[in-house]
Amino acid sequence: MNDDWARESVLLTVAQVQQDSPIFDSLSLRSEIFKLSQQAHKACVNPENVGGFDQAERAAIASRICSLNNEDQLANYYADLIPQSSHAIQIINPSYSGDGDRRVEAILKHTDLVTASPKDASEVDIRKLEDSGISTEDIVRLSELIAFVNYEIRVVKGIRSMEQLL
């Protein structure tokens, strides 16, 4: 059996799923989902066209989202992708709010709101991003980044919980 899909999956690696796991058969049934999740992961953190968010900034925002969800292992995975010399490293700390950089402040405020309380987001929040100079394309890139990492966090937590309890 070819288990490359499992070895290459960041989500299964972070959730520390072993091939002798009691839920491995269930995961195998959904191997295509884990392959596609890995493709989306690449499109999120290391895309061909990064747009207005370089790789370090993407990884830093992702790590911050994980910390806001108390998902430390995935937060550490993303934090490890950031070069220590990058200014983006500050972003991983949820108490950092941008230090007067208008663009970064707007991005982090939006990231925190949509992560923790998506129901409270409204049209005004999109206008705030535009007002701080973020392009339409980058608003979609940021939205996908925030939304996708929130997906990843639940998959990891759900699988971990299944492994422990089933």
């Binding site: 949509v114 998506p118 129901k119 987001a121 929040d125 999109i126 608003i139 979609v140 939205s143 996908e144 925030i146 939304a147 996708f148 929130n150 997906y151 966090i153 639940r154």
Partner: peptide, 11 residues
């Protein structure tokens, strides 16, 4: 839907 809601409801 943690993903889909954060696109549909935000954009």
């Amino acid at each position: 839907f943690a993903w889909a809601n954060r696109l549909m409801h935000i954009l």
